[in-house]
Design a protein around this nucleic acid. Structure first.
Lengths: 168, 168
DNA sequence: TTGAATCACGAAAACAGTTTTCAATATCGA
DNA sequence: TCGATATTGAAAACTGTTTTCGTGATTCAA
């Protein structure tokens, strides 16, 4: 029911579908297809997890070093508008972007030690929220649930924390 | 089980207890009692709901116009450190501060039409989260649940929305 | 009570993340 | 291909927040 963010290869077929969907969105909106947008989108969908703008920019620059912040920001907004990507904020002050995963909607557990972000979904949780909203005469459009804490597997967690520390 | 943010008068006795608790905190930390801090804390605890820095500053300036941003920010940090106040971020980019309400921990429903923020708490929800964390070998330190949507009472909601629009 | 050490203040500058501006360039339909 | 229009990249602007720095308060020991 839960999926860590670094356990699977990216599904090439799915990536291509998403690229196509984005291309369609661009056309529908009467916008223009550009090399920069293609590069950014292509790179983004081949990354996994919850990507910050900076992380994305670094990867994008490996393909085309002349692409700058502004274009990455702008393209991410387009991706969000196209509903292919969701923006999330986990309280560290920077936006993170997430290409839809296999689980349509999901919540997050965030380990404060190693930074790992796990996704989960539970229908009982969803139902309970609906019920509480009902009781308060409230209609839910969307919600956000984040559990902050720590992995219980301290060894694996320490390894991840070290890796993260090294690359920073 | 739910409490809106503008249904009650502030309990003067409770406010004074909190002021006293803050004074104690300042002493314990070896910090200094100042007129500015007293003003800010006093004004803050007499406001209800989820206060932004700007909202607080406006009120504080009515008492002492010479108090500036920096001192308000600094005092809010002290309030958070003292555990008398919690910082929240609802994704509109600015921090909001909340003096502990009668409900110790609680979650939020946020109406996107009128801006009303309702608090709620449900033990089944908490238990379910613990269970899901357990299943994922995860230990929760704290969590955040926000339901974004709209009041079903459209009339009351419209009144609030109008009031909010007027003051902005 | 006074004085020295220290802390806190306020204004402005710095900062981080993000958005906008603007001149140059690329795209796309006619 | 041409021309209207959208997009780009670099830099400036912006927003919310934090820090700096010179000045002013507070505290506590003498």
């Amino acid at each position: 029911m839960a999926a860590s963010e670094n356990n699977l290869k990216v599904d090439e077929k799915m990536v291509q579908e998403k690229e196509a969907a984005f291309a369609r969105f661009i056309q529908e909106q009467g916008l223009k297809t550009t090399r920069q947008r293609n590069t950014i989108v292509s790179v983004f969908f081949r990354l996994r997890g919850h990507i910050s703008v900076e992380e994305l920019l670094i990867e994008v620059k490996k393909v085309n070093p002349r692409i700058g912040y502004a274009t990455v920001y702008r393209t991410l907004h387009l991706l969000v508008e196209s509903s292919l990507v969701e923006e999330r904020r986990f309280g560290d002050g920077l936006a993170r972007y997430e290409g839809h995963s296999d689980v349509e909607h999901h919540d997050h557990m965030i380990c404060l030690e190693c930074g790992q972000i796990m996704e989960f979904f539970n229908p009982r949780l969803e139902a309970l929220q609906e019920q509480l909203a009902e009781e308060n005469n409230f209609e839910i459009y969307r919600h956000r649930l984040e559990l902050y804490g720590a992995c219980k597997d301290k060894d694996a967690c320490a390894v991840r924390a070290k890796k993260k520390g090294a690359q920073a």
